[in-house]
């Protein structure tokens, strides 16, 4: 590859990061400026939160179930099958609940945001909005960020709870473990640091999903083909960033709380 191409690619990368940072900062700054567009926040919360509920419940339930199924047999080799509930709750609350919920919401909503805003971009509706005196970052981006951050937080709690129930279903119904023992071990070893870790993550992940979805949507060029490209990029980039951010937050939390 010629040096000039590397140079141009590096410039494009830096420019994209700069644009993403500006979009995110301006959208968050709009939270403190009038008008607030409360109705748009509620609409987006309904679309993102309530709309994602079925897939989050299904994902959470089966993830908890498969965790119990896989761990119970391994734990049984050490005579520790009784702590299946503990393993399921730790895994769901600290890692799998936030990460899997975010990945599902990313697949559904980062793509939705990128395609919706991208279509508006290529049909000049975003320009029309600006020409009619409305800031698209305030009207379109800010409500999506607020709604995603808030709803992902609650969706993660739902996913954690349903995952633990899924684990219970497998452990009690399929593996014949004692229900009381399962639920006792679920919360026995949990500490506030574990809960905190599980609840801090969706806030960051929600921000990543919404800002990446909106960023690719607002930077769509090249007609319907461009909309497709933006949609794919939004899902890929937000998914990778979620997993990378999960590592960073986990390392930070372990460093602070020691677990």
């Amino acid at each position: 590859m010629p040096l000039s191409s590397v140079d141009a690619a590096a410039k494009r990368g830096v420019s994209a990061v700069q644009q993403y940072s500006l979009l995110s900062a301006r959208a968050v700054g709009n939270l403190f400026r009038r008008p607030l567009y409360g109705a748009d926040i509620i609409t987006q919360a309904d679309l993102i939160g309530i709309g994602s509920l079925p897939i989050v419940i299904l994902t959470g339930f089966f993830t908890g179930g498969v965790l119990a199924l896989q761990s119970a047999s391994t734990l049984a080799q050490f005579g520790a099958a009784a702590i299946t509930g503990q393993l399921v709750s730790f895994s769901m609350i600290k890692e799998l609940g936030p990460v899997l919920t975010s990945l599902m919401v990313s697949g559904r909503n980062a793509s939705g945001m990128a395609s919706e805003l991208g279509s508006m971009m290529v049909t000049e509706q975003i320009d029309a909005m600006r020409a009619l005196g409305t800031d698209p970052l305030k009207k379109l981006v800010m409500p999506r960020i607020v709604a995603t951050v808030i709803m992902l937080f609650f969706l993660t709690i739902v996913s954690d709870a349903v995952g633990i129930l899924g684990g219970a279903f497998v452990a009690v119904i399929m593996l014949g473990q004692d229900a009381s023992q399962y639920f006792h071990t679920v919360y026995q070893s949990l500490q506030y640091a574990d809960i905190l870790q599980g609840l801090v993550k969706p806030i960051f992940f929600g921000f990543i999903i919404s800002t990446i979805g909106c960023f690719y949507g607002m930077n769509t060029r090249g007609g319907t083909q461009g909309v497709g490209r933006s949609t794919t990029q939004a899902v890929v980039v937000s998914s990778v960033l979620i997993i990378a951010m999960d590592f960073v937050i986990s390392r930070f939390m372990i460093g602070v709380f020691g677990r």
Binding site: T123, E124, Q125, D127, A128, M129, R130, A131, L132, G133, T134, D135
Partner: peptide
């Protein structure tokens, strides 16, 4: 610019109506 644009109307190439 938003306030100034109250005095400007624009008709886009394809209309750009909110669909």
């Amino acid at each position: 610019l938003f306030r100034l644009r109250e005095s400007i109307g624009i008709v886009f190439q394809e209309g750009a109506l909110f669909d």
